[in-house]
Amino acid sequence: MITTDIGIIGAGPAGLFAVFEAGLLKMHCHLIDSLPQVGGQLSEIYPQKPIYDIPGYPTVNAQQLADKLMEQTAPFHPGFTLGERVETLQKLADGTWLISTSEGTEINCKVVVIAGGLGCFEPRKPEVDRLAEFEGKGVSYAVRNPEQFRGRHVVLAGGGDSALDWSIFLADIAERVTLVHRGDTFRGSPDAAEKVFELAKIGKIDLYLKTRVVSLDGAGHLEALCLVGPEGQSIINAEHFVPLFGLSPKLGPIENWGLAIDKSAIEVNTTDYSTNIEGIYAIGDINIYPGKLKLILCGFHEAALMAQSAFKYVYPDQRLTFKYTTVYGITELQQ
C-alpha cells in the first residue's frame, strides 16, 4: 500500500500544480490518473494546440505546459499511479482515506484532492447488439497487447486514425484483419488511409465500407459478427472485435461517493475549494461554484488555496505561516 499526505485524483494541470503548492508546505502527494500519461487534456486531447492565457507565457503548446509543470513538481517527488481508474474511496477508522484503483492499487492518504477534469476518458461504445455480453470475451476497446491477435481473426471498427493505424499494424500479426467503417472515406488521415486501401487491394485487409457491425454472436466467447452494408446483411466469423471510436469523458465512480454534484461537476466552497465531505477537495474543471470559469489558471489558483487549507489535516499540531517562494526559495522534499 502507498502512503502519502495528499492523494490527488487526476494528473492534469490542476493536479500537477497542486503537487507544487502542497510541496511548498512540505506535504507529499501521490497522483492517480486513468490515462497512461500525465497532463490530462493537455496531453490527451490537444497536445499540439497553443494556449494563450497562461500568465507569463504569451503562447505555450499544451504538451509543453504539461512538461513544464512536471519540471516544477520535480523537487517534491510526487508518486504516480497511471493507467488506473480510481474505483472506491473509503474513510478509515483513524480518519485517513483509502483510495483503491481498478488494478487494485491502494493509496492511504490524509487528504483527497479531486482534480479529475472532465472525468475519466472512457471508450465510446457503438450500438451493437450483445456488445456488453462479449466484453472481455473477444470484445475490447483498445489494442493493449497486439500479440494476443497472432493467428486470430480480428475485426476493427472505426474511421479515425487509431482504427487505420491498428489495421495496418495488425495486418502483419493477425491471421486476418477486417476493418469496418460506416463511411466510404477516411478524411482525417489520408496517408494511413492510402496504406489501408493498398493493403485491401493485395488482400491483406478485408475492408468493409458503408458498413456497420450490428450484432455479435458466440457461445461464451465471440465467434461471429453480423454486418449491414450496401449489399445487405452478412455474417463473418472472428474471435476478436475492437471498436475504435475514440474516448469520451465520463464522471465515473466519483458520482457515487456522496459528494454534492451539479451537472456532472462537484460543488465546492470557494474559501478553500473543499467539498461537502471533510478532507476532500475538488479543483480544476471538475468543480463548480458561482462564477466558475473552466480555465487552467483558475485551477492553479484553486490548487494554492486548497493546499493552505489541507495543511491542517496533514500537520494538525502546526500553525501555518504564509511564505513567499521569492523570500524562502524552494526546499526539496525528502522522498
Binding site: R124, K125, P126, E127, A157, G158, G159, G160, D161, A163, H181, R182, G183, T185, F186, R187, G188, S189, P243, F245, G246
Partner: peptide, 9 residues
C-alpha cells in the same frame, strides 16, 4: 470531418 468519421453513430 475526422471527428465525425470517428463517431459510431
Amino acid at each position: 470531418l475526422d471527428m465525425l468519421d470517428r463517431m459510431p453513430a
